[in-house]
Nucleic acid binder design. Structure first.
Length: 410
RNA sequence: GCCGCCGUAGCUCAGCCCGGUAGAGCGGCGGGCUGUUAACCCGUAGGUCCCGGGUUCAAAUCCCGCGGCGGCGCCA
């Protein structure tokens, strides 16, 4: 594909790209049969060319192709995206996302995203987790709060798109013990923020017998593994995105471990109006994570700010064995997880305490009724992780075809 | 649901306060140019000023509606 064309009196410089990157090609106008074709090509027109590669310090990248033959070409209309639009990071780029993915920037992000997805699978499989798949059509909410997308499912009206595979993973620990999944989740919250999508990629894991300290360790290892893999394989892409590599290189265990209590103290000392029992919102997260240069494991949230299935800490029952991983530099929450309630009576009590109907959770309660083991798990927002690793301003640029409150095209 | 901002050329935007003949850069087209690096220089075409209503002798400009964007809440 033609990336840039610069036509001079007796030469044409054509910067061409393929999936691997870009290189400059030179066409001499003393060969009119070639030059006449190249002269017609617009940005993003395509061609197959043959020539001799030579070292050339004057060329961008240090070498260039002296074109001897054009074997095939296709003249496209003038490409509708220019440098102004790209620089402005405009809404227009989302309208023409099917063309914008050709940009150097999206090229780099998508290659890093590929590495992140691969690293997740490698990590879990190397540690003996089984990959499983939950359904996308579901009949009840995982948690009370989040909103579900209703689906027209034949003549039924109680079917929705899943917002998490967690409950299904909890089912499968009794078969496979250690399970994970990489799947989309859907949230019908009318969120208009730089870190929300209505359809996002969710890496979730559940593990029998896993306890709180083990969970924290697991999260550190997983995130460290992913970041290292990206640093190993995607130096050029990170550089192209202008990412500060130092911050990624410093990602290694142990992460900062901050209890909810300590977080409240830090925030109060920074002058924020917050008291024990309040949820830690996006503004608070930002203040908090700007204090740290590594991911933060924020743990022991009060019972009332976390979903009903979180297990209360027996030594301090007003808090839960819960953890959020906050990405540094103000990026905020990328993981939510914790120990789950394994005791039948305790879970039933919590469901009632939260004003939920036990009959909506019949099979989930069965998991405790018919033999139960302590277990823990978490959900990782992969798009958010990619956003942080790449240093992007908006989650929409971390995924090729973002879905948000209004956008379902392209 | 709440708060703020914006709708003008293919794209990025100025003009709007203070109403009076529609502007620039990029892109397109034509020409020029000593190997260009987001090339550069000259010329040229290109407009339902989002749409609907109102005020006015007169509206891109003021008012109302409409649409879009950003942020918060919620969460990954």
């Amino acid at each position: 594909m033609v990336y840039r064309k610069r036509e001079l009196k007796d030469k044409i410089f054509l910067i061409v790209r393929d999936g691997s990157g870009i290189i400059q090609a030179v066409i001499n106008k003393s060969e009119p049969n070639i030059a006449d074709i190249v002269s017609k090509l617009n940005i993003e027109s395509s061609l197959i060319l043959t020539g001799v590669v030579k070292k050339e310090p004057r060329a961008p990248g240090g070498s260039e192709i002296h074109v001897k033959r054009i074997d095939w070409y296709y003249v496209g209309d003038p490409f509708p995206i220019n440098e102004d639009a790209a620089k402005a990071d405009s809404e227009y780029l989302l309208d023409v996302r099917h063309l914008w993915v050709r940009s150097r920037r999206m090229w780099a992000v998508l290659r890093i995203r590929h590495t992140v997805f691969g690293a997740i699978h490698e990590f879990f499989r190397s540690r003996g987790y089984y990959e499983v798949q939950g359904p996308m059509f579901v009949s009840a909410a995982v948690e009370g709060g989040a909103t579900l997308f209703p689906v027209k499912y034949f003549d039924r009206e109680d079917v929705y798109l899943t917002q998490s595979s967690q409950f299904y993973l909890e089912v499968l620990i009794y078969t496979l013990e250690k399970v994970y999944t990489v799947a989309p989740s859907f949230r019908a919250e009318p969120s208009r923020t730089r870190r929300h999508l209505t359809e996002f990629w969710h890496a979730e894991a559940e593990e029998a017998w896993l306890q709180f300290d083990g969970l924290l360790k697991l999260l550190e290892d997983l995130i460290t593994y992913i970041v290292n893999k990206v640093l190993e394989e995607r130096q050029d892409e990170l550089k192209l995105l202008g990412r500060d590599m130092k911050i990624l290189e410093d990602v290694k265990p142990p992460f900062y471990r901050v209890s909810y209590d300590e977080a409240i103290e830090i925030l109060q000392s920074k002058g924020l109006k917050i008291k024990w029992g309040d949820d830690i919102g996006a503004d608070e997260e930002r203040v908090l994570t700007l204090q740290f240069d590594k991911p933060v494991l924020l743990h022991h949230f009060p019972e009332q700010v976390k979903a009903f299935y979180h297990r209360n800490d027996p030594s301090r029952p007003e808090t839960t064995l819960s953890v959020d991983v906050l990405a540094p530099e103000g990026y905020g929450e990328i993981v939510g997880g914790g120990e789950r309630i394994y005791d039948y009576e305790e879970l039933l009590g919590k469901i009632k305490k939260f004003g939920l109907k036990p009959e909506d959770y019949d099979w989930y309660l069965d998991l405790r009724r018919y033999g139960s083991v302590p277990h823990a798990g978490f959900g990782l927002g992969i798009d958010r992780l990619v956003m942080w690793v790449c240093g992007l301003d908006h989650i929409r640029d971390a995924i090729p075809f973002p879905r948000d409150i209004r956008r379902v095209k392209p």
